[in-house]
C-alpha cells in the first residue's frame, strides 16, 4: 500500500468544509426528503404490478403467476445474496455465475455419474464453492490482484473446468432425490423459495444488525480508516469472498435441483442480473449502500417487469435489454447521490 508523506493534503476535507462551522443544515428525516429515495423502488414495483394487473387481469394478478415469478428468482436471489458480501466490502466477485455453473455440475456429476450419495454430494458442491471463494480471496488479498480481474479470470477458469468435468455434455439422469428437492412445495410454493427467503433474512440481519456487518461496510466504504480503527479488513475481505463462493455453491445445488440436470453452459448469463440487482438495490432501503432489502426489491422488480412484458407478448430480446437498462439507471442514480453527498 502506498502511503502519503508528512504532507497531509486535506483538499478533499476542505472541499466539504462548511464555512459557517456549526450552521444547522436541513435535516433529512423519516417522513421527509430521505423517505423518497428509500422507498422509490417499492412504489415503482407496486406501480409496475398495478399496470400489468390492469393490462392482463386474467393471468398477471394470480397466485400461479406469483409462484412462477418467485421460483424463477430463487437461484438468482441466492447468488446475489452471496455476491453482496464482496460488494459491501468494496470489491467485485465476477466469478459467482461460473462458480454456480461449476458447483451445479459437480453435484450432477458426483450424484449422477459417480454414484456419490446425495447428502455428501450436496455438501461437496457447497464446499467447492467455498474453496473457490478462498482462492479468490487469496488472489485479491495475498497476491493483490485487482478483484475485478482476479475474479473475471477465476470465473473463466471455472467455465473451463465445468466443461472438463462434464465432458461438454448436459448431465441428466440424476437420482430422483435431487429433483425431489426442487419439486417439494409448501402451499403450492416451491420449498426452495422459502429457503432463499430465509437466506435473505439471515444475510440481511448479519449485514445490518451485527458488528461484523458494520465492519464489513466500513471495509468497503473506508478501508484505511477502518483498518486504523482496528477493523481486521483483510480477514473480513477474505470472509466476504468465501461466503460469496459458499452461496454460489448453494445456488448451484438449487439450480441442479430445480432443473434435474446440469448444463455446462451456465454461468455468464447470471453475471449481469446479479450485479444489476445489487446496484439497483443500493438505491433503495439504505440508499448508498448495498443492502439485502434493496437487492430483493430489485430482483422482484426485474422479474415482474420481464414476466409482465413476456405476458404482453414482448419478444425474447426484451429481457436482457430490460436488465441492462435497469443496471445503467441504477448506477447513474447511485453516482448522482454520491455527488450530491460530496457537495453538501
Amino acid at each position: 500500500m502506498s502511503h502519503a508523506g508528512d504532507a497531509a493534503t486535506n483538499d478533499q476535507a476542505l472541499a466539504v468544509t462548511d464555512p459557517s462551522g456549526s450552521g444547522a443544515r436541513p435535516r433529512a428525516r423519516r417522513g421527509s426528503p430521505d423517505f423518497w429515495p428509500k422507498y422509490t423502488l417499492v412504489f415503482v414495483l407496486l406501480l409496475v404490478v398495478l399496470i400489468f394487473s390492469v393490462a392482463k387481469p386474467e393471468t398477471f394478478p394470480t397466485y400461479t403467476n406469483l409462484v412462477s415469478i418467485l421460483s424463477s428468482q430463487t437461484v438468482l436471489l441466492t447468488l446475489a445474496l452471496g455476491a453482496l458480501f464482496p460488494l459491501v466490502a468494496g470489491e467485485f466477485d465476477l466469478s459467482v455465475g461460473f462458480a454456480l455453473g461449476f458447483t451445479a455440475m459437480v453435484l450432477a456429476v458426483l450424484a449422477g455419474q459417480e454414484g456419490v450419495p446425495l447428502v455428501p454430494a450436496i455438501l461437496i458442491a457447497i464446499v467447492a464453492g467455498g474453496v473457490i471463494g478462498g482462492v479468490n480471496a487469496f488472489l485479491v488479498i495475498r497476491l493483490r490482484v485487482n478483484a475485478f480481474i482476479a475474479t473475471l479470470a477465476s470465473g473463466t477458469v471455472l467455465q473451463g473446468l465445468t466443461l472438463w468435468i462434464s465432458g461438454g455434455q448436459v448431465a441428466a439422469n440424476l437420482p430422483d432425490g435431487i429433483s425431489e428437492i426442487g419439486r417439494t412445495r409448501i402451499a403450492d410454493m416451491p420449498v426452495l423459495v422459502f429457503v432463499a427467503g430465509l437466506l435473505a433474512i439471515v444475510v440481511g440481519l448479519v449485514l445490518a444488525k451485527t458488528a461484523w456487518g458494520r465492519y464489513l461496510y466500513a471495509t468497503g466504504l473506508g478501508r484505511e480508516a477502518a483498518r486504523l480503527s482496528g477493523v481486521k479488513t483483510g480477514v473480513l475481505l477474505a470472509a466476504a469472498f468465501i461466503l460469496s463462493g459458499l452461496m454460489a455453491g448453494v445456488a448451484g445445488v438449487m439450480q441442479t435441483a430445480i432443473l434435474g440436470a446440469a448444463n455446462p453452459d451456465v454461468g455468464a448469463q447470471y453475471l449481469l442480473p446479479v450485479f444489476a440487482a445489487g446496484f439497483l438495490g443500493a438505491t433503495a432501503i439504505r440508499p448508498g449502500r448495498f443492502n439485502v432489502g434493496g437487492t430483493v426489491l430489485a430482483l422482484l422488480l426485474l422479474a415482474v417487469g420481464i414476466a409482465g412484458l413476456t405476458q404482453l407478448g414482448a419478444p425474447l430480446w426484451v429481457s436482457p435489454v430490460f436488465n441492462g437498462l435497469a443496471l445503467i439507471i441504477a448506477v447513474a442514480l447511485a453516482v448522482r447521490r454520491r455527488d450530491a453527498l460530496s457537495k453538501l
Partner: peptide, 13 residues
C-alpha cells in the same frame, strides 16, 4: 491520523 477524509473518517458512514 491526518487526512480526515482518506484515513480518519469513513465519509459515507
Amino acid at each position: 491520523p491526518a487526512e480526515r477524509m482518506q484515513r480518519g473518517g469513513i465519509p459515507a458512514f
